[in-house]
Amino acid sequence: MNIAIYVCLGCMLVFGVFSAASRKLIISAVALAVVSAALGVLMYVLGAHTAAIFEVSVCSGLVTVIFISAVSLSNGDKQIEAQDVAVPARKRRFLPAILIGAGAILMIVAWLTGFSVGTPAAAVSGANFNDVFWETCQADIFGQMVALIAGASAIVVFFKESENE
C-alpha cells in the first residue's frame, strides 16, 4: 500500500507544479484533472471510497469541463500568451525552483527532528459514509443547499440582460 501512496503523491506533485507554472490555460486545466485523478486513487487506497468517486467524477470531470468551456467561450487562451511575452524566461522558472527548494528544506527538517503524527488507527466499527453523512451532518447538507441556490442566483445575475437597457 505504501508504494501506491508514494506513486500517487509523486503524480500529484509533478502535475500540480506543472499546472501552476504552465502558461497555457488548457494545459493547466488538463494537468489539474490528472492531479484530481491521482488524488482519487490515493483516497481509494486510504479507504475513502465514496470520496474517491466524488473526487474523480466531479473535480476531474465537471470542473475541467466548466473551465475549458469558460476558456473557449472567451478565447482566454490567446490573452495569456500576449501578456506573458514581456515576462522573461528566467522569471518563469522561479516557481518550480522555489517549490523544490521549500520541499527539500521541509523534508530535511522533518527527517532531522523525527517528526511524526502517529500511526493509523483501526477503523471505528459501524461507521459508514451514509450513516455519518445523513445522520450527523444535517447542517452541512443545509449549507450545501444554500450554496447551490447562491451559485444559481449569481449566474442569473451576471448573465441576465439589464432590465433598464
Binding site: C137, A139, D140, G143, A150, S153, K160, E163
Partner: peptide, 28 residues
Amino acid sequence: DHRGSYTNLLMVMMLGLNGMLLVRDLFS
C-alpha cells in the same frame, strides 16, 4: 436594476449569516 436578484442575494446572505450563528461544528 435587477431588483429580484438583489432580494435573492440578500436572502442568501442572511441565510449564510444566520447559519454561521446557528451551527455546532467548526466545519459547518
